[in-house]
C-alpha cells in the first residue's frame, strides 16, 4: 500500500532522508520510530505530497505521490505533528469544511460528520469552537478530520504527543478500531511502548536511513538478542541454578532479586524444558515468564541517538 524506493530528500548540505526503502502492506499498522531529526516527518511530508523528494519515488496504492498528487490526496488522511486549527470555526463546521474540501456531496456531509464525531466521541462538543478544545480533544478532532473522506491510508505524525495518559489510551483504542476497519496506518511516535502494543511492523530510522524494518519479534534475531526467561521457584534457588546451568540449551543463568534469569543459546527456545527439568528435580516452580524484548531496548541498540 505504501512503498518508497530509494527515497532521498536533501536540504542544502543536510540529507534528511537518505535512500529510504519502505514497504507497508495493506491493513497494517506501521510504527515509524527514530530519534529527533532522523527524517520521520520529512518522509511523511513527502508521502502526503507536501514536499517533493530530491531523488527516488514514493508510491501510495501504486500511485506516485509526485506525479499523482491529486489522486493520492484523495486516498490518504494526514495528521501533522502539530495540529493547526481554524480557531473561529466550531467543531462541526470544521469537519464539514474538510468534507466539502474533499468533495463530499452536500446531502451526505452532515451524516458523515455525525459518524466521525461518534467514532471519536466528540458529539457533545460539536458546537464548541475548535480553539476551546483541550489538547486531547483537538487530537481526537484531528483524527476525526482525517477520517472524514474515509481514506484507505492514514499517516499520523506523533498523534499522541503532549497528551496525558488517559488521552493516549483513548487514541490507542481509536487506532485499534481503525485497524479493525481495515485502514493502513503509518504512525510515528516517541512513545515506543505504545507502538509496540498496536503496530504490526516497525521501521527504525536514523540519519535518514532505515536501520530496521520488520516485526517486533524479528528484531531479536536481527540484534543477536537471545530468548530470556524469568524463573521463580519456591525454595532451593541454588539447586535450580545448578540444574539449569547444566542444560546444553542454556548459555547463562543469573540470580536476580527474587527470580532466576535464564538466557538460551542462539536458535534455542523454551519448549517447556525448564518446567520439565525443575519438576523432575522436585523443585516447586512458582512462575516461568518469558522476558520480552522491549521496543525501547531495540531502539537504543539500533540507534546511537545522534541527531543531525
Amino acid at each position: 500500500m505504501i512503498e518508497t524506493k530509494h527515497l532521498t530528500k536533501v536540504f542544502g548540505n543536510l540529507t534528511a532522508v537518505d535512500d529510504l526503502n519502505l514497504f507497508i502492506k495493506q491493513g497494517d499498522i506501521f510504527g515509524f520510530i527514530g530519534p529527533n531529526g532522523a527524517g520521520k516527518t520529512t518522509t511523511m511530508r513527502i508521502l502526503v505530497t507536501l514536499m517533493e523528494p530530491t531523488r527516488g519515488h514514493a508510491l501510495i496504492d501504486g500511485l506516485d505521490v509526485t506525479r499523482n498528487g491529486q489522486k493520492v490526496r484523495r486516498i490518504i488522511g494526514y495528521m501533522p505533528d502539530f495540529m493547526g486549527v481554524y480557531d473561529d470555526l466550531k467543531v462541526f463546521e470544521y469537519l464539514e469544511f474538510f468534507a466539502a474540501a474533499f468533495g463530499i456531496e452536500r446531502s451526505k456531509r452532515k451524516s458523515i460528520v455525525e459518524g466521525v464525531l461518534e467514532l471519536t466521541d466528540l458529539q457533545s462538543k460539536k458546537s464548541a469552537t475548535v480553539d476551546s478544545l483541550s489538547r486531547g480533544m483537538q487530537q481526537r478532532l484531528g483524527l476525526a478530520r482525517v477520517l472524514i473522506h474515509d481514506p484507505k491510508v492514514l499517516i499520523l505524525d506523533e498523534p499522541a504527543s503532549g497528551l496525558d495518559p488517559r488521552a493516549r489510551i483513548e487514541i490507542r483504542e481509536l487506532l485499534k478500531e481503525l485497524k479493525r476497519m481495515g485502514k493502513t496506518i503509518m504512525i510515528s511516535s516517541h512513545i515506543l511502548s505504545e507502538l509496540e502494543e498496536i503496530c504490526d511492523h516497525v521501521g527504525i530510522i536514523e540519519h535518514g536511513q532505515l536501520v530496521y524494518s520488520g516485526t517486533i519479534e524479528e528484531i531479536r534475531p536481527r540484534l543477536g538478542i537471545h530468548t530470556k526467561v524469568r524463573v521463580q521457584v519456591l525454595d532451593n534457588q541454588e539447586k535450580a541454578i545448578e540444574i539449569l546451568a547444566a542444560l546444553p540449551q542454556i548459555s547463562q543463568v543469573q540470580l536476580c532479586k527474587n527470580y532466576i534469569s535464564v538466557t538460551f543459546r542462539e536458535g534455542e527456545n523454551m519448549d517447556g524444558i525448564i518446567a520439565r527439568t525443575l519438576v523432575n528435580a522436585n523443585i516447586d516452580v512458582v512462575a516461568i515468564q518469558p522476558e520480552q524484548l522491549k521496543l525501547d531496548d531495540a531502539f537504543l541498540q539500533l540507534t546511537k541517538g545522534i541527531v543531525h
Partner: peptide
C-alpha cells in the same frame, strides 16, 4: 471557553452551513 474545554458537558450553539466552495 477554557472551562468548557475541561468539562464533559455538551456545548450548545448555532452551527453555520457551508453553502459555497
Amino acid at each position: 471557553k477554557l472551562r468548557q474545554s475541561y468539562s464533559s458537558s455538551p456545548v450548545s450553539g448555532k452551527i453555520r452551513d457551508i453553502k459555497w466552495h
